[in-house]
Amino acid sequence: MTFQEFWTVDLWPLIWIVIKILCVVIPLMGAVAYISLYQRKIMAVMQLRKGPNVIGPWGLAQPLADGLKLIVKEWVIPAVADKPVFLIAPMLSFVLMLTAWAVIPFGAGLTVSNINLGVLFIFAISGLDVYGIVLAGWASNSRYAFLGGLRTTAQMISYEVSMGMIMASLLIFTGSLNLSMIVVTQQHIWFIIPFFPLAIMFFICILAETSRHPFDLPEAESELVAGYNVEYSGVLFALFQMGEYGNTILMSAVFATLFLGGWLPIFDIAPLNWIPGPLWLIAKTAVVVFVIYWLQATLPRFRYDQLMRLGWKVFLPLSLAIFIILAFIAHYNLNLVPHIMIG
């Protein structure tokens, strides 16, 4: 094998993969940094404050300053902590967040990896997210952190089940688990219109899965100080924060892909379809993230038993029922849902 062959056949595709990964990860890091500013500004406006406005024009350098502060800060590892697990937990939560971005389609053919089981991949990775938190809670060897970790475990597992059922209900109509195919299926109508109840349920599941308000029990400040990350400081804490913000963006992007037509424009007419697909996806994701922070400023926290009740006694039966009804509709080809091709 000549070097030429080796280069074109073996090496270049590998380098190409790395380039594609960097194309996603680098903007994502920027987004993760600036979403904290986005959140604080939204909260500030809703509470009639100004929000961060000191560092840089309109506080635009605030995320950089925060990042720098956390990097420079000393790490404190508790003496009683299980050191390896304590160090692995934040890395795990950060890496898993990055991994899931591999299958998100940013445009027609614009994915790092266009695999057939994209939805299942997202589902599997978001199921593993719980380990970062539960390991942090256990390894810290602190009561508050442990309680936060245990709460998360139960919470994430409960909502994952109904989230899976909701995804499965959509898949009846798309006929494919490929996220790009799911977006293409929504060319005529976004899924949020025919499947509005599913979209609402999925959104609530996202809130519970990423432990955002009103389900932020793992880090309930008023009762558990900061929950699972109470013992973390410096870079390790930053990794948790980035993982959390990244997950919020990720699940919003998944919501945008499944229900809001991903990279598709609102109407397929001249000025709107000139805007490139990735921008549409980013805009839709930003809207979903806005709604998440809007809820954070609006709603009080759920109590733990209310959360469990909602997950197991309301969402699970409801999503199962919707799944069966939709399967029935699809099987008998009832034309209740216009313009959706049944796979």
Binding site: I115, N116, L117, L120, F121, A124, G127, V134, T153
Partner: peptide
């Protein structure tokens, strides 16, 4: 066998093992 691989991840790593972990902790 992607499907089996992902199912293993969802079912065993995502749910069963976390229950083990829960009990052991």
């Amino acid at each position: 066998a992607e499907f089996i691989g992902f199912t293993l991840l969802v079912v065993y790593a995502g749910a069963v093992a976390i229950m083990f972990l829960f009990v052991v902790m």
